[in-house]
Design a protein around this nucleic acid. Structure first.
Lengths: 221, 221
DNA sequence: TGTACATCAGTGAACGCGCGTTCACTGATGTAC
DNA sequence: TGTACATCAGTGAACGCGCGTTCACTGATGTAC
């Protein structure tokens, strides 16, 4: 699993405790949302004094940023793994939903309501565009057989725009139709998923599965 | 504007101060998100002592709940007004976006990351379904000329599901195709809008207008 | 194998802060005769 | 029009709390000779 040879016992212990702190942090976030995260509460839960945590994280913000980073990494892994096992766009969509439902607050940490003024570190932005890259790959192969929309089609104008504004996919050779598909994947699935996770469908008597699947069926169009 | 005849000066003053408290509250939410709202801070900003606010709101939660209520009302008004002036689904979509961009945090208070454990009072749920009702009206008239999807169509299965699960539109005579359109309106526009407001498109070199308009063009399909 | 020293995890006290909320009170505004 | 009383807005002190964070310190663990 890990390169254990170079790890001293102390390092191993350190890594283990860092991991446990994060676990507790996720539990707190699940229970009260990200704003309710408290270092002292985590320490108490672990049977330690508050200041002890400063051996492992230099501040509360530091911990939260690392949690966000982990969330992005976890999502990127999920998408990469699904793609590596040959999943098409719909398959990636299913993987995304499974990942989101596993821990809704983790999903919201990535795509939820932003804290005004917070700016993600650059390396997180990098992971985000890596995720986009995986989407583009799948969108590209999905589009191999597809046609370009004709002039009257509602997508024609969007593709024209994307053909000229593709900085976000600068180092990816995807065709405009693939850019469109990747973006649709993102915005449409996020639309259903975020409303589902926020509980807006409960009480409506709707099956989120059906809504989501229905969007998945549209993806390859 | 208001029924001023029955209002005593005291009542007028009271209403005015309540309104100012809410205004300051919105400013704070815009600056630091809903979790950062503090009664004491509002009072200080208004040149009053903290406890004074308890003449106007019985607790912090009470104030927040009222802000959420106002947000729902404001959105319902916006949609109703647009519908009353003859807007079609796309028109409602544009009204929704204008409303959301006017105050992103207000939008997120309605559709953003939920606080685990928070349950909206029933009257707020009522307004939410009123908004749905307005959507259904527009979706119904948009569908007057539209066809039912054939068996192979990706929407066929969703409509079949909606035909049998329509509690959420129980007192509305909308056809399944209209239910589908109303739901799509909601989930797809929310998808683009929430990502836009959360800033996920900035730095990508994309024009959110184009993305949103492109979804609007799909609505009547 | 044993001793001397350095490293580092964790503690407890403390600082300063802001929070929501309660309470007894002052003073101004409105109401009744 | 003037007086007596009731209503109500707002204050200041106080309570209890939890927060993030710093600091000097203890004691255990690891390292070097």
């Amino acid at each position: 699993m890990t390169v254990a040879g170079k790890e001293t016992p102390r390092e191993r212990y350190r890594a283990q405790l860092r991991a446990e702190i994060k676990e507790r942090a996720w539990e707190q976030i699940a229970a009260a949302g990200a704003p309710g995260l408290s270092l002292n509460a985590i320490a108490k839960q672990m049977g330690m004094s508050g200041p002890a945590l400063y051996r492992y994280f230099s501040s509360r913000d530091d911990l939260i940023t690392e949690l966000i980073r982990d969330a992005y990494h976890s999502l990127a892994d999920t998408i990469r793994t699904a793609a590596a096992s040959g999943a098409d766009l719909a398959g990636l969509g299913r993987a995304l939903r499974a990942w989101a439902r596993e821990d809704p607050q983790r999903y919201f940490l990535v795509y939820g309501t932003p804290v005004p003024g917070y700016r993600a570190p650059d390396d997180i932005t990098m992971i985000a565009s890596e995720i986009m890259g995986a989407l583009l790959d799948a969108a590209q192969s999905a589009g191999a057989a597809a046609t370009t929309p004709s002039d009257g089609h509602p997508d024609a104008r969007l593709e024209a725009h994307l053909a000229e504004h593709r900085q976000w996919a600068a180092d990816h050779p995807a065709a405009p139709a693939a850019l469109r598909r990747a973006l649709r994947f993102w915005t449409r699935l996020h639309g259903v998923l975020s409303l589902e996770l926020a509980g807006h469908f409960t009480g409506m008597g709707l099956d989120p599965d059906e809504l989501y699947d229905s969007e998945l069926r549209h993806l390859t169009q």
